[in-house]
Structures are given as C-alpha cells and as structure tokens.
Amino acid sequence: MLYQRRMRLPHVEDPTLNGVPLERMMFSLAADGITIDATKPTTSTQDMPGRDGQLDLTLEDPTGAAYMGNRAITLTLYAIGGEDDILAAKTRLAALAGTIVTLSWRSLPGEYRGRMSLGAWADKWAGPRQIATLVTVSIDAHPYLIGRGRSIALKTGANTIHVKGNRPCWPTWTLTPAANAKTVSIKDAHGHTLAVASTTAITGRISIITDPDHRELRVNGNLMAPTLESDYFPLPPGVHTLALTGCAGILTYRPLTLI
C-alpha cells in the first residue's frame, strides 16, 4: 500500500549526467547542490587618439549581441553505502572525468554541455568501515542551453520557418537535388547564400553541417566546397524566410537558450 501511494506522488526529475539520473549512478546532491555561474560577453575595445571613449571592436552575433564565454557549473555529490558500492560509484563517475558531458535539470529548455573535471574524494568512515564519500564535479560548459533537435521539411521555393530559443543556432541541411540541377542553393532574407555548383547534374544526397566546430559539405558522401560567394550562416531566433533553388530537403537544428 505504501508503494502504491508513492507511485501516485508527482514525479520530480533528478539531475542527469549524459542522460542518466544521478541516483542511477548511486549519487545524490549534497546541501550545496548545483551552482551555475554567470557567463560574460567577450568584448574588445581600443583607444583611438582624437576620439572620446574607446572604439568598440566586439564581434557580434546576428542579433547584435556579443558572443558569450563559457560558464562554470559545480555539482556537490555524495554516495553512501558499503565500501564496494562506493567504489563502484566512484569508478563510474570517474570514467567521465576529462570528457564532454551533458547536464540537464528539471524543466530547463535544454541541456548544458561541457568538459567535466573531478575534485578530490572526501571519504567518510565509521571506525574501520567506509560509509560515504563526497566529491565536487566541475563542468566548463557552453554558455547556452542546447535544446532537443528539431527538423523542418523544406520545399523548392520560399519556406517560412520559426526558430526556437533566444540565440542564433547553427543548422544542418540535408538536401535532395532536383533532376538535372547543376546548382543548388539556400538563401535567407538577410543576403546570405549557401550554394553548391557543378559542371554536370548534381546527384545524390547533399549534407551540410554549418557548426564552426565541425563544418563540412558532402555530396553523395564526398567532400566538396561551396561556391566562393557562399556563407555558412546561422539562424537567429524568430521567423525566417528561406528560399531553396534546385532542391528540397530537411533543416535540422538545436535551439540555443541563454538564461
């Protein structure tokens, strides 16, 4: 009966590392819980003779905002149990040290992503028996929450789409060329064009990754370069009009949200 009453309680999501709840890793949050530090804009200014103040040389995203630096996330965790259980928990968590992990929590519109480091273990003993351990986990995280992937089907010609989040994101394009098309292009309403051209008809799937950390363009699995006039442009949040020429396809993106 007690078990049935518990099953009717509202479900509360635990923090997850790489999609795994902490409790399944045999850890719980200590009193300090999770601390998410602020992120600061990356700015640049220069003194200029004959001019009051400083010249702002800050690089800005398509929304006019300065690009943001990483943010520090700290989790204070503890594990309790027998010595073998605690060792198993330590081993599982330590396997993530130095890797890029994801952290999600409650109803946040996405997950934080960054490289994890592990502090020193603070073991607790009752006489000769170990009963608990305490540790601090740090994540050097991307400044934005990265949302779930969204896919939008695009037709030849004009397409109106709505991009979620509140910061520009980098899309992935999967395109199918029209019959006998020698040029395939995508244009937005801000003067950006991303195009592929060939002296013969383009055949096979075109996949384009615009993320600056892993940028590539492939036609039928083969690496190719876009035209010289092309630009790997991001998608600011809000409503957009995209014009596809010589193709149809699918736009995939993960919305970015700054909180």
Rank of each mutant, 00 (worst) to 15 (best):
A89F: 06
T45S: 02
H11M: 14
T136N: 09
V219R: 09
E111H: 10
I208F: 05
G165T: 02
D84P: 00
A65Q: 15
H190Q: 14
P62G: 04
M26W: 12
A178I: 07
G114T: 06
T160A: 11
Y3W: 11
S198I: 07
T210K: 05
P41R: 02
N159H: 04
T160H: 08
T210S: 06
I202F: 00
D61A: 06
L17H: 09
P49E: 03
H240L: 03
I36T: 11
G191Q: 08
L118F: 09
G33Q: 03
L154W: 07
L9K: 10
Q130L: 15
D56M: 08
C247I: 08
L223K: 12
L223P: 08
L75N: 05
L108F: 08
L258E: 04
S151M: 09
P212F: 02
G238W: 04
T245S: 12
L235H: 12
A95M: 13
I36A: 12
A66E: 09
I73M: 04
W121R: 05
A66Y: 00
M7T: 14
A141G: 03
H240D: 06
T200S: 04
E13V: 03
T35W: 09
T156W: 04
I100K: 12
L22F: 07
M26S: 14
A132H: 03
G246Q: 07
A88K: 14
I131Y: 10
S117T: 15
T160G: 06
I100G: 08
L57K: 12
T58V: 13
Y253N: 12
L251G: 00
L9E: 12
M116W: 10
L75M: 03
R215C: 13
R8I: 09
R167D: 07
I259F: 14
L77D: 06
G50S: 00
T210E: 02
L59D: 13
T42S: 14
L93S: 04
A97P: 10
P49L: 03
G50R: 00
L244Q: 01
T43R: 14
P49Y: 07
R218A: 11
R148M: 04
T42V: 10
I186R: 01
D213F: 07
P62S: 08
S44C: 11
L22P: 05
A179D: 09
A132K: 04
M26F: 12
G238F: 07
I86V: 15
D231Y: 14
P41F: 04
T245N: 10
I202Q: 08
I80V: 13
L242G: 02
P109S: 02
